[in-house]
């Protein structure tokens, strides 16, 4: 008898990673906080007026870049329902859509900020937190756990402790913190990721913004599945934010929500937040398999992507 070749498989022992449809670019038309809302619809109109020309520019740039000119561009808008709750979807969303329409902007997807913390049983923020890999200062050999300030993330090494740890020991002179990738001089950034009052953890705005970028880049998976896929809303706008899906598809013809790259058009007051976001994103290790999926896909349609994640994110501050 010839030897029998046996194969044996166990589903639970294999890892499956779903793929996600991707646009070329996801453009964030705005991010609405309570203070903007309180300032009235004029503030919103002003925002859209500033955004409109940039959206047009991005579209034409991508049309040139994509073979055949079939650029897939999707737009999105984020409402803060995490740090403060204001108004209701039923009241707010139509107002936003109207203000956008006045400048010929169509919002394809509307998302809730709290979904970046958790939604539908998926704690996206935890998911990203567990994927942080600290940028090691030189001489990090793995022999000790990474130096951590609980709830904080920095881009280098903090000032060492000066007080001695030993009775009658010498105190160390003060030393400045240092950025790992400094060019001559440091720009040291230390970002608070969350704080905890009692059992409740509040994620910081830059951390949720980092999650938001990863979601838009289609780089997150939970148990191999794509978290928070956009949902079309049938029926009217709910009276309560919790009744609203995490990401709502407003335009049935819209290009996919997630994209190879993102562009955010923001007011310059968000500059420090976005520096913090980049500090975080440059230390997130995205799943290997997901990165490969995106790379294969983009190559197959002739789009060359920046190798590093932070370089796939761009901004216009106006």
């Amino acid at each position: 008898m010839t030897p029998v070749h046996a194969t044996f498989g166990e589903v639970a022992a294999e890892r499956r990673i779903a793929s996600v449809p991707l646009s070329h670019v996801s453009v964030e038309l705005g991010h609405l906080y309570m203070e903007d809302f309180e300032a009235g619809p004029d503030r919103l109109r002003e925002q859209f007026r500033r955004v409109a020309p940039w959206l047009a520019t991005v579209r034409s740039l991508w049309r040139e870049r994509v073979p055949g000119g079939r650029a897939r561009v999707s737009t999105c808008f984020l409402v803060d329902d995490y740090f403060s709750r204001f108004s209701t979807p039923a009241e707010l969303v139509p107002m936003v859509l109207e203000a956008a329409a006045e400048h010929d902007l169509s919002i394809d997807y509307l998302a809730r900020e709290s979904a970046c913390a958790q939604s539908g049983g998926v704690e996206l923020a935890r998911l990203v937190e567990d994927r942080l890999v600290d940028d090691p200062p030189p001489e990090t050999d793995g022999s000790r756990p990474p130096v951590k300030e609980t709830g904080w993330l920095c881009n280098g090494s903090r000032s060492p402790r000066t007080a001695p740890l030993q009775a009658m020991g010498k105190a160390r002179p003060w030393e400045p913190p240092a950025q790992n990738a400094k060019r001559g001089h440091s720009i040291f950034v230390d970002v608070e990721l969350w704080d905890e009052k009692g059992p409740r953890r509040t994620w910081s705005c830059p951390f949720l913004a980092a999650v938001w970028q990863l979601l838009r880049l289609g780089l997150l998976r939970s148990e191999g599945r794509v978290p928070l896929p956009p949902v079309a809303l049938d029926g009217g706008w709910p009276r309560d934010w919790d009744g609203l899906p995490a990401v709502v598809r407003l335009n049935p013809q819209a290009a996919p929500f997630s994209a190879y790259t993102t562009l955010s058009v923001l007011s310059p007051r968000f500059l420090p937040v976005e520096l913090a976001v980049r500090t975080i994103l440059s230390q997130v290790a995205v799943d290997d398999e997901v990165l490969r999926q995106v790379a294969t896909r983009s190559e197959s349609e002739g789009v060359r992507l920046e190798e590093e994640l932070v370089d796939r994110i761009s901004y216009v501050f106006v």
């Binding site: 639970a12 998926v122 704690e123 935890r126 997150l220 998976r221």
Partner: peptide
């Protein structure tokens, strides 16, 4: 379960 959103792979045989 060392990482949120990632499952543990188990083989039984």
């Amino acid at each position: 379960g060392l990482m949120a959103g990632e499952s543990v792979r188990v083989s039984r045989r």
